[in-house]
Design a protein around this nucleic acid. Sequence first.
RNA 1: GUGGGUAUAGCGUAGCUGGUUAACGCGUCAGUUUGUGGCACUGAAGACCAUCGGUUCGAAUCCGAUUAUCCACCCCA
Length: 429
Amino acid sequence: MNMLKRPNGTEDILPASSQEWQNLEKFLRDTASAYGFREIRIPTFEQTELFSRGVGETTDVVQKEMYTVTAKESTFTLRPEGTAGTIRAMLQNGLLNEALPQRVYYILSCFRHERPQAGRLREFHQFGVEMAGASSADADAEVISLAKQILDQIGLRGIELYINSIGCPVCRKHYHAALKQYFSSYQDQLCETCQERLDKNPMRILDCKSPVCQEIAENAPVILDYLCEDCNSHFEKLKANLDLLSIEYTVNPRIVRGLDYYTKTVFEFVTTDIGAQGTICGGGRYDGLIAQLGGQSTPALGFGMGLERLLLTLRNQGISLNQENTCDIYFVPMGENAVAKAMQLTAQLRQDGISAQTDVMGRSLRAQMKYADKIHARFTVVIGDNELEQNEAILKNMKSGEKVLLKLDETFAQHFSDIEIADRLGMEE
RNA sequence: GUGGGUAUAGCGUAGCUGGUUAACGCGUCAGUUUGUGGCACUGAAGACCAUCGGUUCGAAUCCGAUUAUCCACCCCA
């Protein structure tokens, strides 16, 4: 019989690394809270139309990467990103009628049917934030600042911030016309896909990796020269704000995000340490999306951060979020009576919130000590006939080898607790 | 969707141009005498060599297909 396997492009997170995930998630929650963002949890699947309308009918994500499932005549789509569902939830529950700006964050998994490769999975995890109601570039700076702080404080190095403005629908229209005109004169030389792009979305040509297209794009008109008064001053203000916050950035007019809802500010945090998929965090402003989804016209912005890519970069830079998973105390019983006693003590300590374990394999003393060492138990207590008779036993500190005699009665948990706390404090200094 | 690489114990690998019981490291388990872990030593378990088919007296090794996986393109986190 064939062994069942997980689907292509998915991952199992095993005990050895789940600690890392928990630490990362805790850090993200704490940092987001410091910025006033509160968690929102939304369904894993939504009506398909939410994404075709929100993310954009012409995007690759919608056209060829969505997992759309049918059950009992209803059709749904597994979320390919977090923004559309989050905005939908905010609208449906009237969050935008409350004090603005609304700040929310989420940690969730997204699904896209692509060919998996380094830093790209079919189910991947995202931390994201959305801020709704603020139109000024001060909000942009705040959101970028949050992403920056996360990446910095977690210890990542060499992450570049690229920013751009892709304007509002008005100035983008002028820009598209200019681009089309420019590229039309090179139409024959462009690669096949770019020839198609020429009509639908000429901005994508700027992003093409084909050397020929790149060369042609070299001298193409730049969006920044076509921004309207409002968009231009918004971008200038953003740059000033970033300077104010000492956040380094590079203006990259080539950044063209693949989701249709973006307006004005777009940005990416990029690493070169994990192969071709270097964008750890991407986001921007989407002033039109809320109206697009049926709400009152409300400015908003946010970002998504790829957690697998974040963890991958950390690993490649030799940074570990893993704390050694320890067992506070391990009982080593010898003989039937001792096993019973150990069982009681273990249960008692656990109820006091102390992580305790004892032998369940019927192993020898020596083997038990080895096991205690392997699971990084902080303390061990051997219980044999002598101990049962005296009703006291020796607590051994596995790191220092120190030994303390303790009563095996109701006071045990309290005494142990004191010693254990002292030990922890001692280790941190 | 397109192109390329790889598939040998839980993990990481060796196995040259096909030839008797498929090797090594890590990990796991037991032990190195009588009640104390880390080091070292001894031993054990664990692989129908991804699957199916072909060539051959003989295939982990050569060929084909399938599947899985990795890398890159497209696009994105």
